[in-house]
Each structure stands twice: as structure tokens, then as C-alpha cells.
């Protein structure tokens, strides 16, 4: 059966997420990947990607578009990257962002410093046989996670990949760089 994935399309690298999920689902007939901008767009989705972008901007637009409660109640799996990871947390070091509280963890925004400190690194991720080329762009880290959260990867600055029930969150950008192993791990975890 086809899989329906939405990408929260308020701001950020939405097109890259759409392209990555389309490729990950290329051999699954009847699958679709669509942009989500309104509460009604969430109906019938199996999964939702929350993209990278500016978490302050996306947070504000979630409220403006009446998406806060619908996202908290969303029953599918969530695949969140960078700003998305900040938004899924239940605590953040910044009052300018109202997080969704979907994953019990504390995140620090911009944990690496300025853009020149952004980096690519070969990262060991639990469940992957070979390291993953992770692209960190003004990335956050989780500094503390609840006992129900599985830590998939960490670096000296903090935790950068987690799984919590049907949700996965990454401080880096699996949607950039063409390696879809984490997308496949996410879909398999949902039994899709």
C-alpha cells in the first residue's frame, strides 16, 4: 500500500525534504509526498517531516496558521531535522520558540556557534552499519533526554540523533547529501 508523507511547508528546506522522501518512496506504488500548510493537510498522513529553517520563524508561523494543536495531536510519525528537532523538543533554551513537546528532551539552539562553525562530519549512528555524512548547519543539540528516548548519535557538543516512539529527530540534515538510510530507518520503524 502507498505511504502518505507530508512536509511542513512554512519556511526552510521544504523542497529538499519532499525530494528526499519521494526518492525514498520511489519503489512504493501509490505513495505521495505533499506540502502541509494548513491543519486540514494533516489528515490521513502516515508521517510528517519538519524541515530545517529558522525555528523562531517556523514557530511563529505554526501559531499564525493554527497548526500548534493539530501538530501536537498528530498521530503519524514525525521526521524532524535541525529547526524541526528544536520544535519537537519539550524544553528549549530560548523563550522565542514555543516547542511542540513531542519528545522529552532539552535542546540548545545554535550549539555550534556561527555559520563558519557549521560542519560536515562522518557520524556513527546506532542501527547503521557504516558512518553517515552528517551536515550540521547552525545546528542545535539535545543536552538532556528523557529515559524513554533512544539516543542514536552523539558528538562532543551533545546528542544529535534520537528516536522516541514513532518520532525521529536529527540536529543535522539527512535530506541534504543524497544518503537516504535514515529515511528508510524511519519508514521501517513505522512499519511502512
Amino acid at each position: 500500500m502507498g505511504v502518505k508523507v507530508g512536509v511542513l511547508a512554512l519556511q526552510g528546506d521544504v523542497a529538499e525534504h519532499v525530494a528526499a522522501f519521494r526518492e525514498a518512496l520511489a519503489e512504493r506504488p501509490g505513495s505521495s509526498v505533499m506540502a502541509v500548510r494548513r491543519p486540514a493537510d494533516l489528515a490521513d498522513l502516515d508521517a510528517l517531516a519538519i524541515p530545517g529553517g529558522e525555528s523562531t520563524t517556523i514557530s511563529r508561523l505554526i501559531e499564525k496558521n493554527g497548526l500548534y494543536e493539530p501538530l501536537v495531536r498528530f498521530e503519524g510519525g514525525i521526521f524532524a531535522t535541525c529547526a524541526g528537532m528544536v520544535l519537537t523538543a519539550d524544553r528549549v533554551d530560548d523563550p522565542r520558540v514555543r516547542t511542540l513537546g513531542l519528545i522529552p528532551m532539552h535542546v540548545a539552539r545554535n550549539a555550534f556557534g556561527r555559520q563558519v562553525d557549521s560542519r560536515e562530519a562522518m557520524l556513527e549512528v546506532a542501527g547503521l552499519a557504516e558512518p553517515f555524512r552528517a551536515v550540521f548547519i547552525r545546528a542545535p543539540v539535545a543536552t538532556d533526554v528523557g529515559s524513554s528516548v533512544e539516543v542514536l548519535a552523539r558528538i562532543p557538543e551533545g546528542i544529535v540523533a534520537v528516536r522516541h516512539g514513532r518520532h525521529m529527530a536529527f540536529a543535522f540534515h539527512p535530506e541534504l547529501g543524497g544518503d537516504l538510510r535514515l529515511h528508510r530507518m524511519f519508514l521501517e520503524g513505522l512499519g511502512l
Binding site: V14, G53, E120
Partner: peptide, 14 residues
Amino acid sequence: ELIKRGFASMQKGG
């Protein structure tokens, strides 16, 4: 290049 162009991608829709 990926990091620099990636940074720009994060600004999209903004």
C-alpha cells in the same frame, strides 16, 4: 559547498 548552499536553503520561504 554543501554547507554553504545548505545554509542558503534554510532561508527559503523567508
